[in-house]
Design a binder for these strands. Structure first.
Lengths: 220, 220
DNA sequence: TGTACATCAGTGAACGCGCGTTCACTGATGTAC
DNA sequence: TGTACATCAGTGAACGCGCGTTCACTGATGTAC
């Protein structure tokens, strides 16, 4: 379809294509994990030819990396917001436990499973045997990127979160235990056998897990 | 290559192709999850043409289902073996806790992440848009399937395990908490950021998580 | 003990599909004059 | 205020790839006689 044949209201220049593609890819990743981030499908959802994506990304790899960064930011945001909502407590131990529980709730409340930020295979191309050619060099400082905000999908920009993933090579054992529980809970609820649990049972499972984490990691 | 051109020692009839294909597919799933179970690749690893697989499976879907069942059986086996190795205790509570811990160890010791048995997308075809044709009807009671054992990859046949996944629709909340921790731990260790942890730290993380589960789910 | 023959279990070529990517192109946009 | 023009941001066609699957085939195998 030629540009002038487009229906009225659709401009030839999208105006925010980079962010729109990220949003579409984020949707794909949410639905089926990083492997489902398919450049052509993202372009299709935005209503644009696959080629257009190469104006904004070096290729599928860069789109995927961008989506991953976005996922991590959203997860951190969700955790931070949950922790911020939590009222304090006079007892510092109680306050810490509440904050931990809130962080955990933030994790499982996020539409982003932590799998998307932790899985090692997220970085692999969908077709491992493919040798991608060299993407054309993009122009820097394009009008569009100047015009648009840095955060797609209406997400607020975020600062690094203190609740984010600890260094992978040296996790404190108790922290890793809590991490395991929250990570596992997220996966079971978001994409595992518990994903169809009615809200009430779901809450019971979440609270039960948090209670286990808080009680089980408390100093003896 | 025609059969008579094959190197000596390779028979034209494989003799155990069904199991060999399952083993290859199991290897693929272990490396990269269910999405990586690629029929052609499995055939390639066995050294057979892709078409040959259709003598033993209705198509990729049936191969995948078989692999999944196999994964679940291996996981249950691993858990059962670990529990059986655990010495009893006079105190029934202590005995139950030990058994629980052993079951958990069995889970994370299995080369099969529980993801392979729990992920909802495991059932999806790798190429969702594909409409597979009708596979040819296979002959029943072939010589090969009569000749070969039911358990590929040298796995012992197993009985249904009491430690297997609880019913998805009605998990006891405390059980789900423990499940979350073990599930999460497995994923972090097997394919997450903790996969390169040295053995000592790895054990510390496992034991710490088990302690959290045991302490955290103990009746108050 | 041979032999003929039905059936089994493989083969290679080919199909259509969706993918990532490249190419040459063209209308839209912004700006210098 | 117009206009010419460089640049931007899209387009459609095409490429090669690997995939699942189908087809017609052929050698190996087992068995009835």
């Amino acid at each position: 379809m030629s540009p002038w044949q487009r229906s009225r209201g659709k401009t030839y220049h999208h105006g925010d294509l980079r962010n729109a593609l990220i949003c579409a890819a984020v949707g794909l990743a949410t639905e089926g994990g990083p492997e489902r981030v398919v450049l052509r499908e993202a372009a299709r959802r935005v209503g644009v030819s696959p080629t257009a994506a190469y104006r904004h990304f070096d290729g599928r790899g860069e789109l995927l990396r961008t989506v991953r960064a976005h996922a991590q930011r959203m997860l951190a945001d969700s955790m931070e917001r949950a922790a911020a909502r939590e009222p304090g407590a006079d007892d510092p131990v109680l306050a810490a436990e509440r904050r931990l529980a809130a962080l955990c709730r933030g994790t499982s409340a996020s539409p982003w499973s932590s799998r998307d930020s932790t899985g090692p295979r997220s970085a692999c191309p969908a077709r491992p045997g493919r040798t991608p050619g060299r993407a054309r060099r993009r122009r820097s400082g394009s009008r569009t990127s100047r015009r648009c905000g840095p955060s797609p999908c209406s997400a607020r920009p975020s600062t690094p979160s203190p609740g984010a993933t600890p260094a992978a090579d040296r996790p404190p054992a108790a922290g890793a235990a809590a991490w395991s529980a929250v990570h596992g809970l997220s996966l079971l609820l978001l994409e595992g056998p518990l994903r169809r649990l009615p809200a009430q049972r779901r809450n019971a499972v979440v609270e039960s897990t948090l209670a286990m984490v808080v009680t089980g990691t408390r100093a003896p």
